[in-house]
Amino acid sequence: MADNLHPDPPDNRVPEGTAGAVVGYLIAGIGGWGFLGWVAERWLGLPSGIGIVTGMMMGAAGALYLIMKRLGA
């Protein structure tokens, strides 16, 4: 059997390790954009719930995109 069964993906070493970076990006995306959405909702006087849900969806999409670009390849 070959020794190198699990080759590390080249040059995308992340400091936290892959799992930590995935969770970090998701928290940053969903939390950060959720907070921005909540602020926008308060500021524009929208009915409650719309801004934060939109923000969380956008943040999740952005975080997933970033994860696939940075870590997935």
Binding site: A60, I67, M68
Partner: peptide, 15 residues
């Protein structure tokens, strides 16, 4: 990684 991220995103929505 994609599957883990998708599933974990649901937990973080809850958080």
């Amino acid at each position: 990684i994609l599957g883990f991220a998708l599933v974990e995103a649901l937990a973080l929505f809850g958080l």
